[in-house]
């Protein structure tokens, strides 16, 4: 699929949302579109889906079957989940029962008789995902697919994307939550200032080489201990009174540092800890 000099704006006097997008998506590729809120990620995805029409330029070689999962599923419809998915299957020219496979795979079975408007946000989003997959799409477009999904459903998405791309399809996914680590082979595009550019992801940060050690000493020897530690090249971050309650355990932090245990005294002094921490 080729974005051939695509420009887009929402009105004649509006600013350009996207300018001169030139990009190619090959069969089997997964593209993750990154960018801040309002940058134009959803617009790019809707252009790819054919929902929006480029103001200038064109999108060529778009696959015949497209599955689009919008950021917010339109739940304000007088259908139950099953009725809706069966109707969407009919729209695709499939038998209504074609939707049943995805009802099961996306764990929607217990919600089939619930009206769309009564579904939770995450369950409604799964209905939105199911409707896009009833016919295997040549282009799967997921607009913030992890939004509102529970952990079980989120874990299913990389597998579904892999199925589509393994069959020669393409996947275009927007993400601002950092879930892309689950799609290790994805190519990244960045949308900023109305331009779409290849994005280089920084490698995950190395664990910090530094740790914090808590030392207890007598009040009389505190000054001496601090001087000794400083002389040996250590940084003294703070001094506090030992509370009657003893610390229970230390909690490691994702960045490799270890936070001090939270005692009542710690909680009272939390502000200074945060300020003093390197």
């Amino acid at each position: 699929m080729l974005f051939d000099g695509v420009w887009f704006r929402y009105g004649r006097r509006a600013a350009w949302t996207l300018r001169d997008v030139r990009a190619t998506v090959e069969p089997g590729q997964t593209i993750v579109v990154l960018g801040r809120n309002g940058a134009g990620k959803s617009t790019l995805l809707q252009l790819a889906a054919g929902v929006l029409r480029p103001t200038r330029g064109a999108i060529a070689a778009r696959p015949s079957v497209i599955g689009w999962v919008p950021e917010r599923f339109p739940a304000d419809q007088p259908f139950t989940a099953r009725d809706y998915l069966h109707r969407m299957a009919s729209l695709r020219g499939r038998a209504p029962s074609a939707a049943d496979e995805w009802i099961e795979r996306l764990l929607l079975t217990e919600h089939t008789t619930t009206r769309l408007g009564d579904l939770s946000k995450g369950t409604a989003q799964k209905v939105g995902l199911a409707q896009a997959l009833i016919t295997r799409p040549g282009l799967l477009i997921l607009d913030e697919p992890w939004e509102g999904l529970d952990a079980t459903a989120r874990a299913l998405i990389p597998g579904i994307v892999a199925e589509v791309t393994a069959a020669g399809g393409m996947a275009l996914i927007s993400d601002h939550r950092g879930e892309i680590e689950n799609l290790p082979d994805a190519i990244h595009w960045s949308v900023a200032d109305a331009l779409v550019t290849p994005a280089e992801l920084s490698s995950p940060a190395e664990p910090s080489s530094r740790v914090i050690i808590e030392i207890e000493t007598s009040r009389a020897e505190a000054d001496q201990a601090m001087a000794k530690l400083t002389a040996e090249g250590h940084r003294v971050l703070g001094v506090r009174d030992v509370a009657a309650e003893q610390p229970q355990s230390s909690r490691p932090r994702p960045d490799g540092t270890i936070t001090p245990p939270e005692t009542r005294a710690d909680k009272a002094a939390a502000g200074s800890w945060n300020q003093d921490r390197p």
């Binding site: 929902v51 599955g67 689009w68 919008p70 339109p74 419809q77 729209l91 409707q131």
Partner: peptide, 11 residues
């Protein structure tokens, strides 16, 4: 809903 109309358009 507008989004459903667009889903139908894609389909």
């Amino acid at each position: 809903p507008d989004v459903q109309r667009r889903l139908a358009r894609v389909a």
